[in-house]
């Protein structure tokens, strides 16, 4: 709970601060806190990924983009009234939805009834891999993972296509 509260405070910071460098650093801290929350929630693999990806790689990428552009956000000219209304309406609907959610941490909820018990019971004898996350990722849901790998492949190719070639002058160009 303390970690979650800290995350909320950091989020307020991200919303308020106009210096983009500060925002990127705060989002790195946020990712580390998220990784700690994942460890508390027993998701060790996810925590590892979040710590290395969210706090490491994406922070580096954002910083390199700030180096290429500029690190100061201008004051928005439009009033924040409409976004506040949109956000508040979304929050109200979501809060209404949480009233029906099952209580936290109980073993009898619907999430734990479907295929997960099969994975937990059969992983050892069917795949010989004790880490169920790995066996589900690579074996039971191999199609999913193949799809995800293809998405990463496509995104990587697209980035290379966008950023390949020499830097042009800053006047508006018709290609791109």
């Amino acid at each position: 709970m303390v970690l979650l509260t800290l995350m909320a405070i950091i989020t307020v910071g991200i919303v308020r601060i106009r210096n983009l460098f500060g925002v990127v650093v705060l989002s790195g801290i946020y990712s580390f806190l998220m990784a700690s929350v994942m460890i508390v929630l027993d998701a060790v693999d996810v925590a590892m990924t979040e710590a290395s990806v969210g706090a490491g790689i994406s922070t580096v990428l954002m910083l390199s983009v700030l180096y290429l552009t500029k690190s100061r956000e201008s004051v928005p000219t439009s009033t924040p009234l409409f976004p506040v209304i949109v956000a508040a309406a979304a929050a109200a609907m979501l809060l209404f939805g949480t009233l029906d959610l099952p209580p936290f941490g109980e073993a009898a909820t619907a999430v734990h009834q479907h295929v997960a018990p099969h994975y937990l019971a059969k992983s050892m004898e069917e795949t010989g891999v004790p880490n169920v996350v790995t066996s589900v990722l690579a074996s039971y849901r191999g199609y999913d993972t193949l799809g995800e790998t293809t998405v990463i492949f496509t995104a990587g190719i697209a980035v290379l296509m966008l950023l390949r070639g020499r830097r042009k002058s800053t006047k508006p160009s018709t290609d791109a």
Binding site: V44, D45, A47, M48, T49, S52, V53, G56, I57, V129, P130, N131, V133, T134, S135, L137, A138
Partner: peptide
């Protein structure tokens, strides 16, 4: 060691890139 502890291809790839 991803079969026995936390870890796997995604994490290892990111760490190697790091």
């Amino acid at each position: 060691h991803g079969d026995y502890g936390p870890g796997g291809g995604f994490q290892a790839g990111v760490i190697a890139a790091a």
